[in-house]
Amino acid sequence: MIALQDEKHFLEKVTHEIRVEPKDWMPDQYRKTLIRQISQHAHSEIVGMLPEGNWITRAPSLKRKAILIAKVQDEAGHGLYLYSAAETLGISRAEMIDQLHSGRAKYSSIFNYPTISWADIGAIGWLVDGAAIMNQVPLCRCSYGPYSRAMVRICKEESFHQRQGFDILLKLSQGSKAQKNMVQDSINRWWWPSIMMFGPADESSPHSRQSMEWKIKRFSNDELRQRFVDMCAQQVKVLGLELPDEKLKWNEKRQQYDFGEIDWKEFRNVVNGNGPCNKERLATRIKAHEDGAWVREAAAAHAEKRRAKSARAA
């Protein structure tokens, strides 16, 4: 009876756009969904540091190098904000990292593709961050307070990421023949994986409906994907380049772009571990964590010694 009342009160709050805060009553499933989504989001930021980090030591100018370090560092920050938001729901960062390393938690599949040219750093900024922003802006109004506040901070910082990416591509597109080829090749490789980032089509998206009702999610996968395609189809013209989709065409009646069929077989395969870099990315993360174990232990041990010393002195 009480539970029913709680549930009613909770739904009322959500409907009236009142944020749910950590100590408030919430349905178990709501908590679970949030933990899954926020931790997955955090993992994506952390694993996402790797493909771009791959070019820090080879960035072609000092300016680009500084920007790239700052950007990858921002992603560490974003991962940290998100882990913190998830921790308010009663799970520790250590548990979440363990879930990632043991393969029980997922992260965005896009980071299982390799960065093989400098242009990929631009393409990630323009397409991958672009798609991420499309997904994230509505999350600033997510019903769970700590998540929505983390997203506000992230979106504020994220805006320079997409711009710097486009700026890299623009420079390349105005450059030598080799640079133009580099950038078109990069767009060819990143385009389809980017539009897969919005997730399965609406009719086969398992968690979507409930998440919309709870206002964790505001727009459907397909709605956001369409917006993204419309945006990129325009922006690619500024670069004087093409998106690798023969069916991409303005539809006067719909006032939107039509576009080709996504290869869902590839999508499922990469999600399930068969992408070009799945194993490598995870192994790299595990190695960093394991190599850091003695450092974390030493710092904890030293703090303990200091506390003991000051307790004795008191």
Binding site: M49, L50, G53, I56, I69, Q73, A288, V295, R296
Partner: peptide, 17 residues
Amino acid sequence: SEWTGHGPVLEQDIAIS
């Protein structure tokens, strides 16, 4: 900068970067 993305803990990854 070779540490960026490979630090012993997130907070220190950010610090060394």
